[in-house]
Write a protein that binds this DNA or RNA. Structure first.
Lengths: 236, 236
DNA sequence: GCGCACAATGTTGTATACAATATATCCCAG
DNA sequence: CTGGGATATATTGTATACAACATTGTGCGC
């Protein structure tokens, strides 16, 4: 879809390029929560001035994907336990009804696109690229919102999915992502049948399932602060 | 709460100062949709460099309150008819359940705060300051989300309320805001009684009522484009 | 050896200068 | 008088220089 890491030559390399690249890296868990994103560092990597980097970072901060601490710099966000709860609660309010609407509006082309999505996800899993599989799994939800033709909610879901990726990085406990894939399959079928009620129900269950797959009992502050304090912010 | 227009002396005048001031002006309908927000102009007004103004504008753009057109500048957003529908649909998904939660968590202090809010709103109306009354009416909804202790949803509602203010500026047809005030009163009572179910129901009705008070049949593009083309972008 | 103050370094925040683009003006051909 | 094109003006986009702040390292006194 969009060019992510490879910025070969003719592309203008705008702030969006940088913010998309960083966002993608976070989605794919190549950037861990807490990682410092130095401005000069990013400037060098993408060969743009700090002005552009700054714009990109501000954009990511507005999405709660990174946190900018004044005079300290930008860090990949570390959602608290409370925040994790909130994000999934918000998703449970928005996505089921959106899935219903998507089922009502979906065309054959849309369904084909969703299926292609799943195929790519499986391919990534088989290739051992767990990060990319997770990223695609998230994009699946955004795609449904797009099919529902609801830009406002799609934007919100896009942000919530991004935050979910960070939450998963911090609090995930289940190993296999197979059940998830099953849920997506069932959703595609419901949408393909234009069965709104079923799609809504399935999405609701799917989100509750995801939600319950998180370590919500672990003391949150301890874990992430220990990580930061013991291992430092450096990653990769 | 926050200092809005008056920045007397010692305050550092950051990007938030500017963005809050502009946001407030939009909430109060002192800035009409389509108004151009020149960078130099804002620099002069708030006595900061364009760098700060730019940061503020980017922040507002992320909230869909203004639109930044490349090489053209920033303009107060003109939500389309579709967008208006979407914003209220999103609110109808988020706010009723949030009101329920607020009712469950509300303390006596919270209720007092809400009542004070209404009092101020009435005072503004009596003083003929319709803009400020509208702004307070919007803040009422945000306040409920705050009482619900749900920062994630509160942020979303905050943005949706801001966008609603623009939508009202463009598509409002009803004259009196009395019914609205009544609805808020009823909501306060339900919240004061910690009656979650009733609060949810009342909020749902209130939003549908607001939604139905809009001119959703008028061709949208015509109206706003005519405005721009006939009157120009200049305002005030 | 330990703790604290101070200096050195690096990073972020802000302002400004310059470049690129869009808009407005003016002039001239028709 | 109208229309189109070229120039002039104004505004936004970007890079860079400098200031402010935080962090780190060093050395002195105890």
């Amino acid at each position: 879809m969009t060019l992510t890491t490879s910025h070969s030559s003719s592309a203008p390399v705008t702030a969006d390029t940088v913010s998309n690249a960083v966002s993608q890296a976070i989605h794919e868990h190549r950037l861990a929560p807490g990682t410092k994103l130095g401005e000069d560092e990013l400037s060098d990597i993408y060969e743009v001035s700090r002005t552009i980097v700054r714009t990109a970072l501000q954009s990511l901060a507005h999405q709660h994907i990174i946190e900018i601490k004044r005079n300290r710099g930008a860090f990949v966000a570390q959602p608290s336990l409370t925040e994790a709860q909130e994000v999934f609660e918000a998703r449970e309010l928005l996505e089921p009804r959106t899935a219903r609407r998507a089922a009502q509006k979906a065309t054959a082309k849309d369904v084909a696109l969703l299926k292609d999505h799943i195929t790519q996800e499986h391919a990534a899993l088989n290739a051992g690229d767990r990060g990319r599989a997770l990223s695609l799994s998230g994009k699946f939800h955004v795609e449904i919102a797009r099919i529902a033709q609801h830009k406002t909610i799609a934007d919100m879901i896009n942000v919530l999915v991004a935050r979910s990726s960070l939450i998963i990085a911090l609090y995930w406990r289940r190993e296999s992502a197979i059940c998830e894939s099953q849920a997506h399959h069932a959703l595609i079928n419901a949408i393909g049948d234009n069965d709104g009620a079923r799609a809504e129900e399935l999405m609701q269950r799917h989100l509750v399932d995801l939600h319950s797959a998180l370590n919500l009992k672990e003391s949150p502050a301890v874990e992430q602060d220990l990580r930061t304090m013991l291992l430092g912010n450096r990653e990769r």
